Computed example of a mutant assay.
Amino acid sequence: MKRFLKWLLIILVALLIIFIAIFHKRIILTYRLVDKYISLKDRNVTTEKVDGLKMSKSMNYKDIIYKNTNGIPLTLDIYSSLKKNSDPSPVILYVHGGSWVYGDKSIPNALSPILNAFREEGYTIISTSYELMRGKANFNKQVTDVKDTIRWIYKNKSNYNLDPNEIGVIGISAGAHLSLLASYSSNDEFTDDKDLSQYPSKIKYLIDFAGPTDLSLLNTNNLNYDLTKIFNSIKDKDIVIKKFNPINYVGKRSPNTLIIHSNLDPMVPYKSSEELYDKCVEEHVKAELITLNSNVHDLSNISNTDIASMSEGLLKFIVFNSPL
């Protein structure tokens, strides 16, 4: 019996050493980020008080043209790692929302503190643009724009010291819809720029803020003039829904997915996120669903309680997928 207990103790110690060897960096990273997060909460930092943390004040490269295939130059911004390190940097790509018609690539204040915290730990943040719809639906072009941004990262990894094996994507609303399609589809789907099409588009993880996952669930009544014109331009809605529903692309090789959505969302039904989560579980894709309670669709007027919930979940999810 003593011999058995001795070997059991040796095995347990060995397992503990292996666990620490594998996860010690993540444990340390989690501690540092949680410490910063708690510090922000203790100082009662709100979205109106983040001037010192605004991303725009520490941008390294602005309006880099990543492609021009339709007479409209498309650009991205790079917020480089704030940590002095010669190793290639993990990348977080931000894709803005705006109902496919509006918006720009500036980082929302609600996301700035958490993204800057990751920059301090060695991450590079890239914010991209895509061709906005003007008068008619053009989902295909927008998806290829997001996908070509990912391909651009692979192409330019050496120029900006980026690690293409460690790309995470954050999309909001329409940007989340495009990010889901770009991330779930295969390398050879949704191509546009001939040069960029030679590069991979694989990512490691995806964060979806209230993205439409099933276009058939959207309420297209009482839309404004621009959106009414867009949806009226679709001749065969069934074909569009089939091709541009992200949930149709979920498969066993899909990246780890974090879904963040309010159950009071007045624009995109919360049901769409529930269905995406269930589909991920069905396909054995690692997925999490964080439910918010603000009566808003995007991050513009999100409550401080939901900011805390969102930030904590976002932090934990990225750390779990972190190579640092």
Rank of each mutant, 00 (worst) to 15 (best):
N187K: 14
H177P: 07
D195R: 13
E189C: 05
E189A: 12
L196C: 10
L181S: 10
N165D: 14
I207T: 03
Q198P: 06
S197R: 13
E166D: 11
I207P: 11
D208G: 03
F190A: 08
E166Q: 15
S173L: 07
P164V: 00
S185Y: 00
D195K: 14
Q198L: 14
G168A: 13
L178S: 03
L181A: 05
H177D: 07
I207L: 10
P164L: 01
Y205V: 01
A174M: 06
D208N: 15
A174I: 00
E166S: 13
D192R: 15
S179R: 00
S179P: 06
L178Q: 02
P164M: 04
Q198C: 08
F190P: 02
S173P: 05
S185A: 13
G171E: 04
G175S: 06
A182R: 06
G175V: 02
N187M: 04
L181T: 10
L178R: 05
Y199W: 09
I172P: 00
S183Q: 11
D193H: 11
I203L: 11
L196W: 13
G168R: 08
Y199F: 12
I207M: 13
V169F: 02
S186V: 02
D192G: 07
G175N: 12
T191L: 15
Y184K: 09
P200N: 12
I172K: 13
P200Y: 10
Y199A: 08
F209H: 14
Q198N: 15
S173Q: 08
N187I: 00
I203W: 01
S179A: 14
S183K: 09
D208T: 00
E166F: 07
N165A: 11
G171H: 13
L206V: 10
I172R: 11
P200S: 14
Y205L: 04
L206P: 10
I170H: 08
E189Q: 14
L181N: 09
S201Y: 00
Q198T: 12
S186N: 15
P164S: 07
Y199D: 01
D193G: 10
S179D: 09
G168N: 06
K202C: 02
I207D: 10
S186F: 09
S197Q: 06
A176M: 00
G171C: 03
L181Y: 10
P200L: 09
Y199I: 01
S201M: 00
N187A: 05
I167V: 11
N187C: 04
L181P: 11
S186D: 15
A176N: 07
D195L: 09
D195Y: 10
Y199S: 12
V169M: 03
P200H: 11
S186Y: 12
S173Y: 07
N165F: 02
G168M: 11
G175D: 05
F209N: 09
E166L: 03
G171F: 02
Y184D: 02
H177M: 06
A182K: 13
G175H: 11
S179V: 00
A182S: 10
K204H: 11
Y184I: 00
I167Q: 06
K202A: 02
E166P: 03
D193Y: 04
Y205D: 00
Y199G: 10
Y205S: 07
Y205W: 14
L196F: 08
Y184W: 09
